[in-house]
Amino acid sequence: MAEAVRGFAIIAGAWMRAAMTYRTSFVLGTVVQFVITFMDFAAIIIMFGHIEAFGGFSISEIALLYAISGFGLGAADLLVGNAEALGRRIRDGSFDQMLVRPVPALVQVAADHFALRRLGRIAQSSAVLAWAMSAAPIDWTVARVVVLVAAMASGSVIFSAIFVMGGAFQVFAGDAAEVANAFTYGGNTLTQYPLTIYPTELVKGVTFIVPLAFVNWYPGLYILGIDDPFGLPDWLRFASPVAALVFVAAAAAIWRTAVRRYRSTGS
């Protein structure tokens, strides 16, 4: 594990230094990322210009859900978002090169072309979170702060696991980055809104199959002090770290299988 962190730091560091030689490009890239993700939230603000509540939630409550999910996706994208380019790496042979170096292949895949401009989404989510924390009707207790922090960490882990699974899937199915995108960016869009607007089947799916509901929905219900509209058990509100651990273990197993089943390309 220490070896993996060290490897990541070395490779990511080299790319950060390389990016800093083009400082203007880096600053512009980060600002553009921030603006693009902000436009995303602007759409929700405009929507609330016409309605009071959406799915039974006010704008500040939705902002809390939005921010936790956005932070998780942003952190996952910064750390392992590069896994979605694995199909290309397999085709151009650079994945073969990674397999003959003394650092775990996943670490190299994740750290290669590490781009700090991806901090843009994290910055935007943090800004929305700061506003939601003060504006939403929350009775702040130590327990609620702990659940919030745990949700942000668990959300990052869950989205990271999806990125890794998406990468592993490309070992079997060639270039299929879009499949993973459906669950990462798609999952983020889905969890930006309260799950009350979706059919029950979908809510069960994102609870028991792809644990997206644990990113922000269940911990969000606890922080906001709302009873589960679907009548699911209350302990789910504290289960995000467990869901994240189970899911990341599954992702690790799938990744290892993918590397063992890897066929490389011709020549």
């Binding site: 042979g93 073969d96 090169q97 003959v100 170096r101 003394p102 650092v103 775990p104 290669d112």
Partner: peptide
């Protein structure tokens, strides 16, 4: 694999191991 990596050097003529 990662342990063996320290003992071997690999050059694929068609590809590059450089960034």
């Amino acid at each position: 694999r990662t342990e063996l990596a320290r003992h071997i050097g690999v050059v694929f003529g068609q590809r590059t191991g450089l960034w």
